[in-house]
Nucleic acid binder design. Structure first.
Length: 575
RNA sequence: CGGGGCGUAGCGCAGCCUGGUAGCGCACCAGCUUCGGGAGCUGGGGGUCGCCGGUUCGAAGCCGGCCGCCCCGACCA
């Protein structure tokens, strides 16, 4: 492609709206332009990258035996009511009515549609397993789109759905996707880790996320260097630490703490470590109210809390409800002397502790020296807090480490969460009707492009891995007015094209400096420079964007050398 | 949804406090010179100052409302 006939509007300055490298560089390199918050247009250069990512995804999905389909973006409300998610999904689900006042939504995911498609069509276990996937637009009306393409409202996703006759078969489908995903991200040049994850609103029991290491990532990866344990923050467990109390349980005592409410205030007022305070949180669930007790220096992990309480929904009780249960306002609640008896679940670390401090269930009073079992009852001790730095690995006991990451893929074992309510059944060998055992598997295709840039850039611009680079070679003619430079450049351009190499030929009538800057910015891995001095000796220069390694060779051997280098770059990523 | 900030030419910004009819750099067009790391000179084109209303002889600037965008948080398959 000749740059004079291409559209690659590069920006010299960093756009004000961009906070992180990938966002800034995608705008500067002329890959994308914003249309509205979280909604982007892809320009020719950016679209080439997306297409290459889609092609890798497609190849690996096909290799894994999945079949490509194409499902509607606009989906009828009835389907979502059937699965129960019309009411569960919040404002993220963009809803609207058609001309006949029927409710529709823009698909944020496609479980409902795929189940609807498969039920009725697939009737026998003989037709299983089946794995259908698609690559196209998703729309989620995010509360706060950010970081450019990383967290957009409209984005391209590859989503796949597997249908199996039983859990054992699902395991095989799931593992096949796990393998395919690993290959996909490796081919895209990403440095990633697979973590155990919560399954969230999608549901299901087992789930893994594919996380790309990136300081600007929104997710927190909790991992162990010694044994390889890795989980996202929501899921991460830590080893239970058995402590033998260093002091004897003392007698509880009520103390006057006027207007002292928060953990920090209480800690400062009573001069007691936050870890000795008991944070008492009252939640409303579908099974009634629950009091969660955690150390003052910890945060309640609601996902863990739900599991511990065996409930589906968890919502903080409002001040009026709190008052009714505790007999005191928020800030003075504690496990001792609750007005109403409700379920009490304590973090397991509370079990071996003594002489805690909590609210006294009376405004402006706290109670000190309370000890579980002695002074208050607990219905269960569970791990209900977020892991924190300093915690130990649940598997091997080494210190856990925390790092930021970008989620590029997520796989779930759904089981019958959708097939059951949506009555998607097949007839098994034993002649019985059974719901499909499902899995679902997502990849943020456009997000991959941004994640790759986060990992592979320098001060001058992007450094694409060749597998998803918009072009393989950047042919740079330093001066188009120099006859020899032009002649040799044209010859090389044709030579490279003849070899099937994707080359972006900078034939613009620009100064060399401008071209070098643009070449670095757009980050095509191999640059061939035809300059006046070299070309006078029938030589050209080949430079690698990533390593800055440079070699000079004769014009005659240039095409072969480039071919060799390109081949080698692919091998490094696809081996 | 809570808190903060910003909206002036394609991009980056100044002007606003202290009202007087819009400016700088880059980009764009033309010419000459230049030509391996975002050239120089000369001349040019381009702006309902986010929108609506108010105050005023006069509003980019003051006041009110709305919209959009960005950041922090909450939320997040």
């Amino acid at each position: 492609m000749r740059l004079t006939r291409y559209h690659m509007p590069t920006l010299r300055e960093k756009p004000a709206e961009a906070e992180i490298p990938s966002h800034s560089l995608m705008l500067r390199a002329g890959m994308v332009r914003k249309l509205a918050a979280g909604i982007y247009s892809f320009l020719p250069l950016g679209w080439r990258v997306v297409k290459k990512i889609m092609e890798i995804v497609r190849e690996e999905m096909d290799r894994a035996g999945a079949l490509e389909v194409f499902l509607p973006v606009v989906q009828p409300a009835e389907l979502w009511m059937e699965s129960g998610r019309w009411s569960v999904f919040g404002k993220e689900l963009l809803r609207f009515k058609d001309r006949n006042q029927r409710d529709f939504c823009l698909g944020p995911t496609h479980e409902e549609v795929i189940v609807d498609l498969v039920r009725g069509e697939v009737r026998s276990y003989k037709q299983l397993p089946l794995n259908l996937y698609q690559i196209h637009i998703k729309f989620r009306d995010e509360a706060r789109p950010r970081f450019g393409i990383i967290r957009a409202r409209e984005f391209i996703m590859k989503d796949a759905y597997s249908f199996d006759k039983d859990w054992e078969s699902l395991d095989r489908s799931y593992n096949a996707m796990y393998e395919a995903y690993s290959r996909i991200f490796k081919r895209c040049g990403l440095d990633f880790v697979v973590v155990e994850a919560e399954s969230g609103a999608i549901g299901g029991d087992v789930s893994h996320e594919f996380m790309v290491w990136a300081p600007n990532g929104e997710d927190t990866i909790v991992y162990c260097r010694s044994c390889g344990y890795a989980a996202n923050l929501e899921r991460a467990a830590s080893r239970e630490v058995e402590t033998s109390p260093s002091e004897q349980p003392a007698d509880p005592e009520k103390v006057h703490t006027p207007d002292v409410r928060t953990i920090d205030e209480v800690s400062a007022f009573l001069k007691i470590e936050p870890s000795r305070l008991l944070k008492s949180l009252i939640y409303k669930t579908e099974k009634g109210y629950v009091l969660f007790l955690i150390p003052g220096d910890r945060e309640l992990n609601e996902a863990k809390a739900k599991r511990a309480a065996g409930v589906e929904t968890l919502e903080m009780a409002d001040p009026a409800e709190v008052y009714e249960i505790a007999g005191a306002s928020v800030g003075f609640v504690g496990p001792v002397g609750l007005k109403k008896r409700i379920t009490v679940i304590a973090d397991r670390s509370v079990k071996s502790g003594v002489n805690f401090v909590s609210g006294a269930n009376e405004d402006d009073y706290h109670i000190v020296n309370i000890t579980p079992e002695k002074d208050f009852e607990v219905d269960g001790y569970e791990d209900i807090v977020f892991a924190a730095p300093g915690d130990l690995c649940p598997k091997c006991g080494s210190p856990l480490e925390f790092s930021k990451g970008i989620e590029v893929g997520h796989i779930f074992k759904l089981g019958t969460k959708y097939s059951e309510p949506m009555k998607a059944y097949f007839l098994d060998e034993d002649g019985k009707e059974k719901p499909f055992v499902m899995g679902c598997y997502g990849i943020g295709v456009t997000r991959i492009a941004a994640a790759v840039i986060e990992q592979r850039h320098d001060d001058n611009g992007i450094m694409w891995p060749i597998t998803i680079s918009p072009f393989e070679v950047y042919l740079l003619a330093t001066n188009m007015k120099n006859e020899k430079v032009k002649e040799v450049s044209e010859k090389l351009y044709q030579g490279l094209l003849d070899e099937g190499i994707e080359v972006l030929y900078d034939d613009r009538d620009e100064r060399a400096g401008v071209k070098f800057k643009d070449a670095d910015l757009v980050g095509i891995p191999v640059r061939v420079t035809v300059g006046e001095r070299r070309v006078a000796n029938d030589e050209v220069e080949i430079k690698l964007r990533h390593s800055k390694e440079t070699l000079v060779c004769s014009v005659d051997e240039a095409v072969d050398r480039v071919k060799e280098i390109v081949k080698q770059l692919y091998e490094e990523l696809e081996a």
